[in-house]
């Protein structure tokens, strides 16, 4: 494998990881602050992608579509939080899993109802449709590079939000002791809705960004949801830093595993069985990574073991 190809795969892994971070950040905040397991987070990702595709097709502008994805996912998040999820914070994980599983059904079928079963397509805006030459003789699609930059910017923004703003102080306080900040006069209900809307908007953004690379279809959220759960479990639930490191780890492991493992097995196996064994192990690799992390650190890399 040439260096250029390796660098390209490295960037692909980073892009995948950054996209997972957008999903995982919301999940980990919602779990950390409200103690809620939200299986329906993937549905918000789908809502974002569909909103972007619909608005971009109607207006012809991808950028309006992106804004629509943020707004639509945030609104969907607020509605779901205020009508359903609010009643689940005090319940056990089982009830949460069942209720949010039901929400997946409602969202997926509702979207199918509105948009039909056929996938929609998003076109990449012209400014970002070319590729960019990078050092090391790498030609890399500008759009994917943009996703990496957007993701890193969002990560930086979130760190700033959590560590340096009043809202961030409240979120951290809510994570460590929710009765206490309630007693100190913070409107817990409003804080929860806000955190949920923030997480939902990020998921919607991720859906819209990825929708332009892949197709926009019903059920696109669930595979990503599972990966996002893997990410937050590896990183430690409730930790934004853990989510970022976990997301990049998972993204790189998955992408590099897919390209490197088949050629690695090619060294001592015949080509056909090498590629099948290699790709089998590659798709298992992130789960092996997760099991290994939990075996040595049962609370994830940056999590506390409680909860």
């Amino acid at each position: 494998m040439t260096l250029a190809l390796f660098l390209e795969q490295l960037l692909n892994g980073l892009q995948f990881g950054v996209m997972l971070f957008l999903m995982a950040a919301g999940l980990t905040l919602v779990f950390g602050v409200m103690g809620l397991i939200n299986l329906a987070h993937g549905s918000l990702y789908m809502v974002g992608a569909f909103a972007c595709a619909a608005v971009a097709t109607a207006t012809g502008s991808f950028w309006l579509g992106l804004i629509a994805s943020l707004v639509a996912a945030a609104i969907a998040g607020v509605v779901v939080e205020m009508t359903v999820l609010r009643r689940l914070y005090a319940r056990n994980h089982l009830d949460q899993v069942l209720a949010t599983f039901a929400l997946i059904l409602v969202f997926s079928e509702g979207t199918r109802w509105l948009f039909g079963s056929f996938p929609l397509y998003l076109t990449i805006p012209p400014i970002l449709s070319g590729s960019i030459s990078l050092p090391g003789d790498v030609e890399y699609p500008a759009y994917r590079l943009a996703i990496i930059l957007v993701g890193l910017a969002v990560a930086a923004g979130l760190f700033w939000l959590i560590s340096a703003t009043r809202l961030g102080v409240r979120i951290r306080a809510g994570e460590s002791d929710r009765e206490m900040i309630g007693a100190l006069g913070v409107d817990i209900g409003k804080l929860y809705t806000l955190v949920f809307a923030l997480g939902a908007a990020l998921a919607g953004l991720a859906g819209a960004l990825v929708g332009a690379i892949q197709s926009v279809q019903v059920g696109m959220g669930e595979p990503v949801l599972i990966l996002a759960f893997v990410v937050i479990v590896i990183g430690g639930i409730g930790s934004i830093k853990g989510a970022l490191i976990g997301a990049v780890l998972v993204g790189l492991t998955d992408t590099l595993g897919r390209t490197l493992l088949p050629s690695l097995f090619g060294l001592f196996l015949e080509p056909a069985s090498a590629s099948s064994t290699g790709s089998a192990l590659a798709s298992m690799s992130i789960y092996v990574l997760m099991a290994a992390v939990l075996f040595f650190r049962p609370g994830g890399l940056f999590g506390e073991l409680s909860r």
Partner: peptide, 30 residues
């Protein structure tokens, strides 16, 4: 043996991870 070292949400997720491993293994087992 491996999963019961964890508890709570981590247990939910590690059992899911093992099932997914076997799922992907079955998919790519010609």
């Amino acid at each position: 043996l491996l999963s019961l070292r964890t508890s709570g949400v981590y247990f939910i997720m590690i059992t899911l991870a093992f099932a997914q491993m076997i799922y992907y293994f079955a998919i790519s087992w010609p």
